[in-house]
Write a protein that binds this DNA or RNA. Structure first.
Length: 108
DNA sequence: TTAATGACCTCCG
DNA sequence: TCGGAGGCCATTA
């Protein structure tokens, strides 16, 4: 599997600027598969072995909630990484989500 | 090949 | 306005 939907997702996630976040649906939509939002999340499941490492901590659901934090080595790591980049996280939710939101479709 | 899974999104009550 | 249930697509076993 050289090229697949996953590769597309990885590319977009790696393009996310530091201190910015995006949603799975936005990525899926940017790839032309707005209904395949679940695939984006599924791709992240494989992102653990993807190289270079994927900044999955910059990707959250459309609610701005860190749903995938449990998939990290440690749930708190995701929040730490976000705060380390200047993203404020409160109650497992990204503060000013719509403000820090980064639309991949605009970059692509 | 068929069936099941998933870090989601949208709609309806 | 808030909560719950269903549906979509690609990948893996």
């Amino acid at each position: 599997m050289e090229q697949s939907f996953y590769e597309q997702v990885y590319e977009v996630v790696r393009l996310i600027p530091k201190g910015r976040v995006t949603s799975y649906g936005a990525i899926a939509k940017a790839l032309g598969a707005g209904k395949s939002s679940r695939l984006v999340g599924y791709a992240m499941n494989n992102a653990h072995d993807a190289l270079p490492p994927i900044p999955a901590h910059r990707v959250v659901n459309h609610k701005g909630l860190l749903t995938g934090k449990f998939h990290f080595p440690t749930p708190e790591l995701m929040q730490e990484l976000l705060e380390n980049e200047g993203v404020i996280v409160d109650q497992d939710k990204v503060k000013d989500f719509k403000t820090l939101f980064w639309d991949p479709a605009e970059e692509l």
